[in-house]
Amino acid sequence: MINRLFTLLIWGLASCVLFAFGWLMVDVLVQGVPMLSLDFLTSDPIRSGRAGGIYPIIVSTFLILGVALTIVLPIGLGSAIWLCEFSNKDSKIVSTIRLSLDVLAGVPSIVFGLFGYAFFCGFLELGFSILSGGLTLACMMLPILIRTTEAGLAAVPNEWRRAGAALGLSRTTLLWRVLIPYAAPAITAGLLLSIGRATAETAALIFTSGYVDRMPESLADSGRSLAVHIYDLSMNVVGGDKAAYGSALVLIMFIVSINLLANALSESWMQKRVSRQ
């Protein structure tokens, strides 16, 4: 009897979760889909976004992401490779670095926003700009990217490192020819996930890349990201809800496809690893 009730409880809890998800999704779809059109994606916003489209906002979003990736890719991948392949894992410094990265990965995005506002906008005098926003996002993505890349490399079987060393291969060759190609899907999946998180980010961008909804002329110009656009439409623009849902749908579609891609990649990688044994 109790067993029966418990089964019922578990099914009940799960259906509640499904219900909440369904509500959210249906809401976004019902209100968002009517907004969606080629025109919406390719025209400028009119009257603070109540009408018109989101073209400059999409451009700004990608510009901010581009800046962030340009910075975070070399530093993040390089740091991860060093941590996994060259560092002495037992040393105190390395474990402190790891812990700091874990902490940083959990730091609220608004705190990154504070830092970016004070440092990039203020101290470096970049002002509210795509550059400031991108750099702030880079700081936010860095720990996530390092940790996922490192995990991908660490999952490469150690026997190949030993085999490489026994053949007198340099570590550079081994990394470039064997380890990185093998870990590439996992590294890409980690990268995609951090891109997803960065695209969803709002709090870190409000005070760094700014609010302006026109087309940015350069990287030093202010630009509004999609997530910030949704926030602004729903909070500050009366009658902006429809456009907000349209933008939300675009944002979700982008992030979901990135996440699906990441999942497919890491799943195929897992299969590759299993079939190797």
């Binding site: 959210l24 949704i230 809800d241 939300a248 979700i252 992030i255």
Partner: peptide
């Protein structure tokens, strides 16, 4: 993967 701002939008409306 749903962005927090979308949760906010949904909660608000």
């Amino acid at each position: 993967g749903v962005p927090s701002v979308v949760f906010g939008l949904w909660g608000l409306t």
